[in-house]
Design a protein around this nucleic acid. Structure first.
Length: 691
DNA sequence: TTAGGGTTAG
């Protein structure tokens, strides 16, 4: 399972941070400008009852809706003799906003029972509410029942089918429409964008441009820019930019944001920044988009610096902002910074129902602080599927796979339906626990019990599980019978299993498949060579190395990093550039001697080169995770846990070595590698040597 | 007095 994916650009950022290791002083976040808390407003019950006594129901309903007390607001209907259209409209709008279909239906029932005859306006509100609450059937029924339809009814239907439902159905309606206007066109374009069909969105945009009757406006260009960003297509984005400048649409801030975001997503980050700098009215969306584009581009320092600037600008961050920054913290395992962001969120107030809260669970989970992840999760009034899944994955990767499975069972009891990502977490928990048969059961339940389609990820997980356990025949049967094409993750898992069990023949097949899919990935060559090396097949090792040279494949450098006092220290294999290198080296030399006395024997199988044993041992002692662990130990007081992060999987020898180190120095050593967490304590590891 | 746009996670 892909856990920590570092793109080439991320490497650049990490390597850059070797020279300038700390988050710059600008990144030290300043004091928050606003002190305000959501969900702590004093109860307005007294006022509401007074208003009801005075029969001022509309005002009472307004307050209840404002406080998200929709159920009570709808209940008030029973006390009103003849509710006005305005009251129904307010309630429907609130149902729509809260996506509360149940209350929406209750309003509908009330209208039917009361004999109120809805006009066009209320009909349109109903269509909108039903469609956006996900009940397209009801929306369609209302639409068909309407005695008269206006352009707005048609547009509401189109925007509801295109937004949440099948966009092709919206297209059918669009074609059937007696007349169209700008709303109809923009609803279609944005619908295609939302349904992840950006090329068709652009096609629609061009069709509109070509038609003489309709002119593009700020709505259609923003959607078209979003479509260009998703493709991504810089050329069409630039074309739209030109159109915007020619037609004066650049007076709108949303258009500017869309423009900036498009440049960022099309890889022109500098151009995005130029647009951002030129913007007259930057709002929280434009700030958030710019910050996220930096993170996406691996420019962590700039992203955090801009976030810090936002915090002092007086503009209040929203859940998108928090989610973006927290995810960057999660990716870079920057827990201290993540905690700081959490502190700001608590002080400024954040919606515990929102995905900012789930981003917190994710951040703590991925940084290995499962206790905090659990604490945040427990504080959520209604944890969403993402939070549940984050916690499951967190436990799975943190050496408590059985706990992960317990959480999954609790999720099922809560009534929330798991999706395919949840099952990736569940299957990976089984893998980490070595629960092969249990994993097979879950795998089969995805389709039979939960009625979900099994994805390539699920197949990769199950093959991983079987291959690690050495059950290659079953793994091969699943591969042969699967209805979808095996992907690179599946073959890589199989190859990994072959490495553990020294299955040379199957390894060759898996590697061949990988060479077709991604000939540029050095990991395949390295693993295959290691399998040959373990089997003593040195001529084959040489062949693999030759192929690597011919195809100009370069081995991905192993990187480990450690955060000490909010400063990031990055190490590569045999790294001598760190200012404290001498002390680190001295420490490693001394501890190696004590490790041998305790019975440690270096495992030299996993060194690619066919060199003398002694030299191989030398190479191993310089692996980046050992350097980072050593630096962590010498830089912190005795007893402090050491937390190290690695971009690749940890090697067998380092794994054994760190077990010894944890015992000798009496420290808890946590290593997050590209696949999971290893928690070393007193000579053993939480993964139970299963990774 | 209804319908259309930009930031988003496991």
């Amino acid at each position: 399972m892909k856990f920590l994916s570092l793109k080439a650009s991320h490497y650049a950022a990490l390597l850059f941070s070797k020279r300038d290791l700390s988050f710059s002083s600008k990144t030290q976040l300043s004091k928050p400008p606003i002190q305000k808390t959501f969900f702590k407003s004093s109860s307005k019950d007294g006022l509401i009852s007074r208003l009801c006594e005075d029969k001022k129901y509309k005002e009472a309903i307004d307050i209840l809706c404002d406080q998200k007390r929709l159920r009570e607001a709808v209940q008030l209907l029973n006390r009103i003799q003849r509710p006005s259209a305005l009251i129904y409209s307010t309630l429907l709008q609130c149902c729509l906003k809260e996506r509360d279909l149940e209350q929406g239906r209750r309003v509908h029932d009330h209208i039917r029972a009361s004999g109120f005859v809805p006009g066009l306006f209320i009909f349109n509100r109903f269509i909108d509410m039903y469609a956006k609450c996900g009940s397209l059937g009801d929306a369609q029924k209302m639409f068909d029942e309407m005695p008269d339809k206006d352009l707005c009814s048609w547009n509401t239907m189109i925007s509801g089918y295109a937004k949440v439902g099948p966009v092709d159905e919206a297209r059918r309606l669009f074609d059937e429409m007696p007349e169209r206007d700008n709303f109809s066109w923009s609803a279609m374009i944005s619908g295609y964008v939302r349904q992840d069909r950006p090329r068709e969105a652009l096609e629609f945009y061009r069709m509109m441009q070509k038609s003489q009757t309709f002119k593009s406006n700020k709505f259609t260009v923003s959607s078209a820019l979003a479509a260009s960003a998703v493709v991504p297509c810089l050329r069409s984005g630039k074309e739209i930019h030109g159109y915007i400048m020619r037609t004066g649409l650049d007076s709108d801030e949303v258009v500017w944001s869309a423009l900036m975001d498009m440049y960022g997503k099309c890889g022109s980050i500098e151009e995005a920044r130029r647009v951002f700098d030129k913007m007259g009215n930057r709002d929280v969306v434009s700030w958030t988009a710019m910050i996220d584009r930096y993170f996406e581009d691996g420019r962590r320092e700039e992203g955090f610096a801009l976030f810090s600037e936002l915090m002092s600008s007086g503009i209040r961050p929203n859940e998108f902002t928090y989610a973006g920054v927290l995810n960057a913290c999660a990716d870079h395992a920057a827990e201290d910074l993540g905690k700081q962001v959490h502190g700001y969120m608590t002080r400024l107030g954040f919606d515990p129902f929102s995905f900012a809260a789930s981003a917190l669970v994710h951040m703590y989970s991925k940084c290995g602080n499962i206790e905090n992840a659990k604490r945040v999760f427990k504080g959520m009034p209604k944890p969403d599927l993402v939070s549940w899944t984050s916690l499951i994955v967190g436990y799975a990767q943190h050496g408590q796979p059985n706990r992960a499975l317990q959480i999954f069972e609790l999720l099922l009891k809560s009534g929330i339906k798991p999706d395919h990502v949840t099952f990736v977490g569940v299957l990976s928990a089984c893998t980490h626990a070595g629960l092969v048969d249990k994993g097979l059961e879950y795998f089969s339940s995805i389709k039979s019990k939960h009625k979900l389609n099994r994805t390539a990820d699920h197949y990769a997980c199950i093959v991983d599980l079987l291959a690690r356990a050495g059950r290659f025949e079953e793994a091969e049967k699943i591969i042969n019978d699967m209805p979808i094409k095996p992907d690179k993750f599946l073959w890589a898992s199989l190859l990994g299993g072959c490495r553990i069990h020294g299955n040379v023949e199957l390894a060759k097949r898996a590697a061949e498949a990988l060479f077709v899919i991604e000939p540029e990935n050095p990991a395949t060559y390295v693993t295959l060579a290691n399998i040959y090396a373990t089997a003593g097949m040195w001529s084959e090792v040489a062949k693999v190395r030759k192929t690597m040279d011919e195809r100009k494949v370069v081995k991905k450098p192993g990187l480990s990093w450690i955060e000490i006092k909010r400063e990031m220290h990055v190490f590569t294999v045999g790294d001598m550039s760190h200012p404290k290198y001498n002390v680190i080296h001295e420490f490693l030399k001394k501890i190696s001697k004590r490790m041998r006395e305790e019975g440690y024997v270096p495992d030299t199988n996993f060194v690619l080169h066919d060199v003398e044993e002694e030299q191989k041992e030398q190479n191993l002692s310089y692996h980046s995770e050992k350097l980072a662990v050593a630096f962590g130990i010498i830089s912190t007081p005795p007893g402090t846990p050491v937390k190290v992060f690695k971009n690749l999987r940890t090697c067998v020898d380092c794994h054994t070595g760190i077990k010894f180190i944890s015992k000798l120095v009496q420290r808890k050593i946590i290593v997050r590698d590209s696949n999971r967490f290893h928690c070393f304590e007193n000579g053993s590891c939480s993964c139970g040597d299963y990774w």
